[in-house]
């Protein structure tokens, strides 16, 4: 198929940036979206133009590195996938595709489609952990029984890949789905109880400091999340925060 691409080009963080048109021919429906961009980049290199910079690594939907806004949607038109899992069979011959970076004040553009998501790391550093040293002297792993339901729900929250689609798609650029997922994972497990209050307070404070917006329960984040992280996690985070502040 033949496609017209309108891709965001921005030389650096301080550059203004603009959409630039590209044509690609010979796109096979078996290609992944990123492989289609690989083909375009090879073409640009051959023509002595600068290839398009985009983040990607595992190309199997788990590292969370790829991050593109495609035709107005985070990770493109399909549900429950990242860009690297999006295949060209989702598009038709003659389509025009808009490709932009994540847009949020807390995710400044580094170059073209690459943004700086280190704010997510800093939120985790503020409290996204259980304070246990790796001495190997912890109690036996089966020493505390954990109900299958709690373990499974914690796992569902823990599958977050930290890609930032929730922030990119939210009209408020809120990171609450991301933070809620991490808070929930620990809140649901007995190991996480000891520091629960400090954890949620510190993580939320850092989230605010980074400049992420608030949640107005639109639910777009849940729809666009490649891992299907549920809005319940935001509710749980709010409960945890309230609990922490009441004590």
């Amino acid at each position: 198929m033949k496609l017209t691409l309108k891709i965001w080009r921005q030389k650096s963080a301080s550059d203004k940036g603009k959409l630039v048109d590209y044509k690609v021919d010979d796109v096979s429906s078996d290609m992944s979206f990123l492989e289609m961009l690989d083909v375009l980049n090879q073409d640009l290199i051959d023509k002595n133009e600068e290839p398009i910079a985009f983040d990607h690594d595992c190309r199997e939907g788990i590292c969370g590195m790829c991050s593109m806004f495609i035709n107005g949607r985070a990770h493109g038109p399909d549900r429950s996938i990242t860009v690297c899992q999006l295949h060209m069979r989702s598009f038709k011959d003659g389509d025009t595709i808009y490709i932009e970076p994540w847009r949020a004040a807390a995710f400044p553009v580094i170059k073209d489609l690459i943004v700086d998501r280190s704010a997510f790391d800093r939120i985790q550093q503020a409290g996204g952990f259980i304070s246990v040293n790796t001495s190997g002297n912890t109690q036996d792993a089966n020493g505390t029984l954990i109900s299958k339901h709690a373990a499974d729900t914690a796992m569902d929250a823990a599958t977050c890949i930290g890609c930032g689609a929730c922030v990119a798609t939210c009209k408020n650029s809120s990171a609450m789905l991301f933070v809620g997922a991490k808070v929930s994972q620990y809140a649901l497990l007995p190991q996480g109880q000891i520091e629960a209050a400090d954890r949620v307070r510190n993580m939320v404070a850092q989230m605010d400091l980074e400049g992420f917006g608030n949640c107005t329960n639109t639910g777009a984040c849940e729809i666009e999340c490649p891992k299907g992280i549920s809005l319940d996690n935001i509710a749980r985070m709010n409960r945890e925060l309230m609990k922490a502040n009441l004590n």
Partner: peptide, 9 residues
């Protein structure tokens, strides 16, 4: 043991 203590589900 270590991973469970860290909250690995």
């Amino acid at each position: 043991d270590q991973c469970v203590a860290q909250g690995v589900p």
